[in-house]
Simulated scan of single mutants.
Amino acid sequence: MSENSRVAIVTGGSSGIGREAAARLGRDGYAVVIGYAGNKDRAELAVKEVEADGGRAIAVQADVADENAVAALFDRAEQEFGGVDVIVNAAGIMPLAPLAELDLDVFDDIIRTNLRGTFVVDQQASRRVRNGGAIVNISSSLTRLARPGYSAYAASKGGVEAITLILARELRGRDITVNAVAPGPTATPLFLDGKPQELIDRIAAEPPLERLGQPSDIAEIIAFLAGPARWINGQVIYANGGSAA
């Protein structure tokens, strides 16, 4: 199947890493379905960004933790473009607090979106992605960096990594790769919002490359795993500029 006939669903595709991944896959020739939670205007801007580079895209609202909404997302992709070849699970939330202070309702929201959401999307993907496809989940280097305040978020992403490694083995015989990308600090609204500049500067200075990651850095890895990286399977790729684990 040529790249020009391949179809990608990107959850969380209206912002941050998801939006950059959608744009990159569009430039690579994929038809892109941009899944978004609630901000329709932002999702439509992401669609226009793909189309401006000559690609094809639509935006579809879906709560990633709702199995019926996710099934409808896949239905729409199949109706518009004929099938699904690549899934990028970029939807996520990141409320921060020390473990002792985190409201358990907030904890439940994190687990629902980040962990259950990945499970629900991967469940549909395992049933409906065409042979020769790829599933790319988004984890986080915080599963190794163990930064205070991130216990709930890192726990949810640890679960994402477990799902990734096991699903890769469960899809034996389908020629579908399943991998996770685990970014370090990346200059997205999810990371930057609510942080003082002094803290951002301190975190940016930690890796040997002495900067924050950019969404384009992560999108490049996603595009590699989605397309040419057919011999990488069941792996977690830590993309953090060399930050110490």
Rank of each mutant, 00 (worst) to 15 (best):
I17E: 10
T143K: 02
G83H: 05
P98G: 04
D85L: 08
G83R: 02
D28Q: 04
P95M: 11
G83L: 10
V50M: 06
K48G: 10
Q124I: 00
T113H: 06
A125G: 14
R130C: 04
E20V: 00
D122E: 10
I135T: 05
A37C: 14
Y30S: 04
V86W: 07
D122N: 13
L45G: 14
G54H: 13
P98N: 09
I17Y: 09
T11Y: 05
R116E: 13
L99T: 00
L142A: 13
G26I: 01
D28A: 02
E101K: 14
A69F: 13
R19L: 04
G12S: 06
Y30E: 06
D75V: 08
G16F: 13
A31N: 11
G82P: 09
V50L: 02
A65V: 09
E44G: 05
S14R: 05
V86R: 01
D63C: 00
L25R: 04
R76A: 11
V106C: 10
Q123Y: 14
D122K: 00
Q61N: 01
L104A: 10
K40S: 15
G92R: 03
R112K: 14
T113A: 13
L73K: 02
D122M: 11
V120R: 04
G13T: 03
A21S: 13
L145T: 13
E101Y: 15
V47F: 06
V60A: 00
V106D: 09
S126Q: 07
V47D: 03
L99A: 12
R147M: 15
A65P: 08
T118D: 06
I34T: 06
A52E: 15
R24V: 00
I110D: 08
D75R: 00
R42K: 12
E20W: 11
V10Q: 04
V60W: 09
R19I: 01
V106W: 05
A97Y: 08
T113Q: 05
T118K: 01
G29E: 03
A146F: 15
I58H: 02
Q61I: 12
T143S: 10
I93F: 05
I135G: 07
D75E: 01
G83W: 07
I93S: 05
A69I: 10
E78G: 08
A22P: 15
L73I: 05
Q79D: 15
D105A: 13
S141V: 08
N131A: 06
G18P: 12
A21E: 10
